[in-house]
Design a protein around this nucleic acid. Sequence first.
DNA 1: ATCTTATATATGTTCGAACAAAACGGCTGT
DNA 2: ACAGCCGTTTTGTTCGAACATATATAAGAT
Lengths: 253, 253
Amino acid sequence: MSEQTVKEKPASGTQHAALTRALMEGISSGRFPVGSLLPTEFELCDLYGASRYAVRVAINELVELGLVSRRRRAGTRVEARTAPRNYRQQLASLDDLVQFGTSHVRVVQDTGEALLDRALAEALGATAGTRWLRISSLRLDGGAKAIPVGWTDVYLDPAYPDIVELVRASPDTLIVSLVEGRHGRHVAEIRQDITAATVPERVAAPLRVEPGSPALRIVRRYLDHAGLAFVISDTIHPAGRFTASSRLLRSRE
Amino acid sequence: MSEQTVKEKPASGTQHAALTRALMEGISSGRFPVGSLLPTEFELCDLYGASRYAVRVAINELVELGLVSRRRRAGTRVEARTAPRNYRQQLASLDDLVQFGTSHVRVVQDTGEALLDRALAEALGATAGTRWLRISSLRLDGGAKAIPVGWTDVYLDPAYPDIVELVRASPDTLIVSLVEGRHGRHVAEIRQDITAATVPERVAAPLRVEPGSPALRIVRRYLDHAGLAFVISDTIHPAGRFTASSRLLRSRE
DNA sequence: ATCTTATATATGTTCGAACAAAACGGCTGT
DNA sequence: ACAGCCGTTTTGTTCGAACATATATAAGAT
């Protein structure tokens, strides 16, 4: 019985891809139930008339998909019937997060210290009473005389006063990138909150809108490895000047 | 010279992992400049005294990281000096996208057909003049008498009139999930645009706010495999009632 | 000079083989 | 009865070899 090697045509793609599909089918159909062990690699070689290499590549695919897990000597265990359908957001780099269409330039308007009152602290997700360095700037889109896209207050860990000078010198680099490059404190996570708001009086004139007109408020907290925020940005975009777009792709097809 | 095989201790992990690191170092140091071609697989075998298998696995790693690209006969091209630091959004499932804190319920207010005028078509990213099924509903958060969180107009491919009835019956399932389950048309991609807006007169009363007060407008287009939108949702959230939150984690540490 | 064809070459796929490492299970000695 | 040792089994790593496939380049034909 085991002599007649089933020479199945791959039909599409590579051989181990076909084997992957065959195993996935076996799992989803329940022929290999969740919790059970898959046949050993050598058994699969006989079963499908493939080399161990092909079997191995195929099983590695399943591991990637989270369908099975492997342990030496113990074998390959079926973990899930189907691959979880996850969505992932496409963001090539940190700078893509700030999706100012073509070019965006920061023009620093004001810098100083900030002592967070309760309202601001709550909006920023920080603790009231803490002290930060503040860098306020206008966001310009493209050409020189363009209407500003938004107003940003960046709150910076007071341990990095040198960054403030650096920010003026490089108007098109993310502030958090400057901290990363200069002080080696890396961003492990970004939390972003988008809410509806009105344009505060303080920034209405530079943004050339009426105070109280509708706006988008985007608060981003940049957390380090320990979960501590060391940069927080608070941006006001008057209505019609900015759209926060995101694409979510299904990860496994 | 080529006789003495350099038996370098892997030092950590597997051999091809060490090779990967060696190549990454060579790229980031500029010894293999961006745009140039890496030595061929066989040359690398000689260079590092490794088998083609090890070289191949190592290069595959680099391809995964986006550092190099490969083309038959053309060779392996260095694409980037450092691995782009990607951020990925954590979204376990489709329903996580709609992050209504604890529980969110949809109460259908009105259904009908919609012929998109130019303004609406542009806002939705659809073509003007096309006809859709419209399902308008209030979003309620938690308890019975709670203030509505938002108003949603869902535009549905007219091929699925049966969904309209289904929607009334299951107030806590995403409409797009209903289409997926019933008609097998799966979501491959979601595009989301968040803008600042004002509450339109039409929905001001049910939302219990003044017309023209600031609001968050979220348009989501659900695309199938071919890139065709078959469901579009358009939601208005009065200020203070909803926050669009997202977490971005660094993918490669 | 331009288009077509042939060839060399680099990557892509697949196999067989061997040894390493971990872990389950049984054996043995106190 | 229990602890520790040891062999067997299964996955993990690595090698060498061969053939397939695409394609850049050179050679040839129009």
